[in-house]
Structure formats: C-alpha cells, structure tokens
Amino acid sequence: MANILPKGAKAPDFTLHVTPDQALSLREFAGRRVILAFYPADWSPVCGDQMSLYNHVLPEFRRNGAELLGISVDGAWCHQAFARDRKLHFALLADFEPKGAVAKSYGAYRDQDGVCERALFVIDEHGMVAWSYCSPLAVNPGADGILDALEALPPMEKNDGTAQNPRHVA
C-alpha cells in the first residue's frame, strides 16, 4: 500500500475539473475543513459504494464544518454521469490530466493499476493534514474514521453554517 501523506503534512494545493467547464482549487477552501476521498473508480457495481454512502452522511460531515470532495482518475464527463445516477450532492474531481498527478502528490496513486488508492484525508482550516487513512482497495472504509477525526479537532472559530437537508440528518 502507498505511503500517503501523514498527519501534520501540508496539503498540496491543486486545481481540478469538477465539471467539463469548471475547475476547483483546494485553496478556495482556505479557512474551512475539507475531506478528500480518493477512490479507484466511478461505477462500482454495488448499492452501498463508498461515494453513495458518503452522500448519505454528508449532513453529518457538514455539521462538523467539513466539505467533502471525491477524487478519482475518471474524466469530468464520467463523473457527471456517475454523480447524476447516484444523486450525489458533493463535488467529484477529475484527476485526469496529467493522470493521477494530484493523487501522486498525496501518495495515493497505484502505479500498478493506474488508479487512486482508497485514501482519506481530513484537511484542517489551515491547510494541514489532520488525519489520513489508506484502506485496502477492496474495502470500503466507511465514514466512522472521518467523523472521529473531525470530532477530535478543536472547535472552529467560525462555522460556515452550510444549509442542511433535515430529511437525511442521520
């Protein structure tokens, strides 16, 4: 398994396509907490795949002041179709060209397979890695580690108060 960036490392900035005509940079989230979820590929053939699970836990992440970004080497059009199919309410970033460059900068790329590891990073409001975890590729790591890491962080000075959908507040 790859040596992913550990707690305390500076989170490398990046700019990636979030839709075919829009890009998003990590620095746009300065002052807020971000969860980066690297995953191997869109379209896993199961119901409870990792991104669908996180979609249902999103209100809980946001209540903890964190925004979620999914990242794989799939292209922006593929992400768009996948996000629409699974009704995802968070951004999927395309680490597509040069392939896997951002994943490599986080130590979360699998050269032998040409895909991202199943690696999670919680980045604090100062842009530092507060927690990271690399799961075996076949094992969906769930959301418990992320929530534990977010709760272990000191309270933020200001909460961004992102709107929540109470129907899915778990």
Partner: peptide, 11 residues
C-alpha cells in the same frame, strides 16, 4: 442509521 455510520457500516 447514525449508529451504523459511527460503527463503520460501509454498505
């Protein structure tokens, strides 16, 4: 559901 998430239910 919430308890399941905290226990690591992953699907």
């Amino acid at each position: 559901f919430a308890g399941g998430v905290r226990s690591g239910v992953n699907g």
